[in-house]
Design a protein around this nucleic acid. Structure first.
Lengths: 223, 223
DNA sequence: TATAATTGTGAAAAAGTTATGAAAACTTAA
DNA sequence: TTAAGTTTTCATAACTTTTTCACAATTATA
């Protein structure tokens, strides 16, 4: 769990930091909106705690800018009263807000409530053009169509994509996928590559033969 | 969603009431602690919003009395500042507190946060097409017809649906459902899957075999 | 171009995994 | 304690995957 704490008062940051450490959160700091924006775009945080009144860039704007790029929950710290309406008016999609002076315990409780709610869906999906791999489900799709791979074929494909653009020798594949105690024929790899390619259909050329060496999964990001 | 609003100032009650109506809450009122106690014991509320300073019986005492009988979340309204410490000191187990003068929007946001949070774990009916699971009652229905599962079968099914579209290894199932100290046969899973499938009748294909790995509950939402 | 080396392929054999039925072991309530 | 129900083990049948292997096709080299 990684938290970004944004406030221009170092004392406030320290208090929050201390309490969050106790709960095993990893804490990063920023002292104004501009700095927060920079950090939030370069790192993934599970939640951002942000003051409103800050030099250089205030909380409203920083939140807005960050939300343009990242879907991260926010808790705002504000001095009091009418500022809440302003927040609501900005329609920033904030998750909670706490008035100063606040109880650190209360803040931590709210952080917990939000981060807990968030954590549920676990998905790990790799995409290479029309080839999609859902590792949690152990499913592979080509152009949205599910294909059925055997266990070894799946393992092989997974190893290839985890090592994309790397030439892998038969020996290396054997050692990593079959284990060091496999004393069978190296050509067994060829057969699996054959069946995997057949299953990949029009994407079979993603696996290229590296003559005298082994095979390689090639994929160029097009960003 | 039913809310009890307790405050001796009718103006305050009216403002809160109005905002809550907009959000489709059902609102009841009380003008002092004694009245609140009476209503809270005779009706079930999803949340109680209560002022501290009131004639006849103050908020602290009323809350205490109500909590003796009902487990209902509270949000306190307080005049300002140091009273928060007093609330904490009373150890009343309140869920939130808002200082006057407050923004009605803020109050509504907090009510929502708490009632939503509360409501999630209560969610106990899971539906997957014609398969329905009532987790509180431990009942399972297929096409409206109740089926009778053994305890282990139910646990297994529940774990599957809690991890839908996730390939689960036998080891993982064993660790999570039987405990880490189970040293029995892994194939015992197969037998339970077999009987569970039999009970699921035409929905037995929701549990698919992931060869070389384990099993998986598949279900695609169709929104 | 001929030759050697390497990879692709289809099919059969071998090995491995899962489904199933039945029995044993265990629990629980009467 | 019995009896009924549940859970676990286990052997075997049914099925799928993995491996081997011979030969065809391709590529590199002299």
């Amino acid at each position: 769990m990684k938290v970004l704490v944004v406030d221009d008062e170092v004392l406030i940051r320290d208090v929050i930091k201390e309490y969050l450490y106790l709960e095993n959160y990893e804490v990063k700091e920023a002292s104004n909106g501009l700095e927060a924006l920079d950090k939030a775009l370069n790192e993934d945080f599970d939640i951002i705690i942000m003051d409103i009144m800050m030099p250089k860039m205030d909380g409203y704007l920083a939140c807005q800018k960050i939300k343009e790029h990242k879907d991260v929950p926010f808790i705002f710290l504000s001095a009091r009263g009418e500022e809440y309406d302003k927040l609501i008016g900005f329609n920033l999609g904030i998750d909670d807000y706490v008035t100063k002076p606040f109880s650190p315990k209360e803040l931590v409780a709210r952080i917990k409530a939000i981060t807990k709610r968030k954590n549920e869906p676990t998905k790990s999906i790799y995409t290479f053009g029309g080839l999609k791999i859902d590792d949690v489900a152990h499913d592979v799709y080509i152009d949205g169509q599910k294909i059925y791979l055997t266990f070894k074929e799946y393992e092989l494909l997974k190893y290839f994509v985890d090592n994309k653009n790397v030439a892998l020798s038969r020996e290396k594949l054997l050692n990593n996928l079959w284990g060091y105690d496999f004393y069978g024929d190296e050509r067994t790899i060829d057969t699996h590559v054959k069946t995997l390619r057949k299953h990949l259909g029009k994407y079979k050329d993603l696996i290229v033969t590296v003559r005298g060496m082994g095979y390689k999964f090639i994929y160029e990001e097009d960003n």
